[in-house]
């Protein structure tokens, strides 16, 4: 009798186990679906990008087909490309951010001395947030930020466009002032605020009524990259 009860008990445990394993596998399935979601979104975004790109090309093609001369169109494109490549000085509404090292006497007893300085990551994080907020042009200490611009700490200075920059850092961005400000606040501003309170670094945001100006970059000369011929 006891043996029989034990066997029945064992049987039950077995059935339980199967159920548990099954539901676990169902969970696994769910996460594989979750995994698919980002690639779905990615494809959707890529399609959107491609469609936009095709529209742009088609527009250009239509101009050619309407008989516009290649030379005229090319010089028009050249002007556009100069602006988007950052080779033209721009001005407009925008914001100015000033960051500076702390001037508090650095009592080495008070933790990490690095907390009193403005680091390359702060500048990069701010630039990143400003682009995210729809900035149309950005400069740091009159160095225009282009696709080739590095922001790299080399000890006592920060290298930007191969020039040495020292604090204070003046970051100027052109764009919608509200959007720039909220992007900044969303990503980095609070963290810098804490450093300001604790260690006395300078963190200043100005939203001037008059327009701000961002200087032009120098043309980068490419030695390795070749345009891919289409078709």
């Amino acid at each position: 009798m006891a043996w029989m009860m034990i066997s029945v008990g064992m049987l039950l445990i077995g059935v339980f186990l199967v159920i548990v394993i099954k539901s676990y596998m169902a969970d696994q399935n769910a996460s594989s679906q979750e995994k698919n979601l980002p690639s779905l979104l990615q494809l959707e975004m890529e399609n959107e990008q491609l469609a936009g790109e095709n529209d742009k090309l088609l527009e250009e093609l239509t101009k050619y087909q309407a008989g516009e001369s290649a030379a005229a169109l090319a010089s028009e494109q050249l002007e556009q490309a100069k602006i988007s490549a950052g080779l033209v000085s721009l001005s407009g509404p925008g914001i100015v951010i000033v960051l500076d090292d702390s001037d508090q006497k650095r009592s080495t007893s008070n933790g990490n001395i690095g907390n009193y300085y403005i680091h390359e990551e702060y500048l990069r994080a701010i630039v990143n947030a400003l682009w995210n907020g729809g900035a149309e042009a950005i400069s740091i200490n009159d160095q225009r930020i282009t696709s080739n611009t590095e922001i790299f700490c080399s000890g006592s200075y920060i290298k930007i466009n191969n020039t040495r920059q020292m604090p204070p850092y003046n970051i100027v961005a052109i764009g919608n002032q509200d959007n720039l400000k909220s992007a900044l606040q969303f990503y980095v501003w609070d963290m810098l605020g804490e450093y300001q309170q604790q260690y006395g670094i300078t963190r200043k945001l100005e939203i001037p009524k008059e327009s701000v100006t961002v200087p032009a970059a120098n043309q980068y000369s490419y030695k390795y990259a070749q345009p891919v011929k289409e078709g």
């Binding site: 988007s84 043309q219 390795y224 070749q226």
Partner: peptide
């Protein structure tokens, strides 16, 4: 010249 600018603004595919 246009190609060089497009490498900077990224609107052209490149190889190298």
């Amino acid at each position: 010249r246009l190609d060089q600018l497009k490498i900077t603004d990224g609107t052209i595919a490149v190889t190298g």
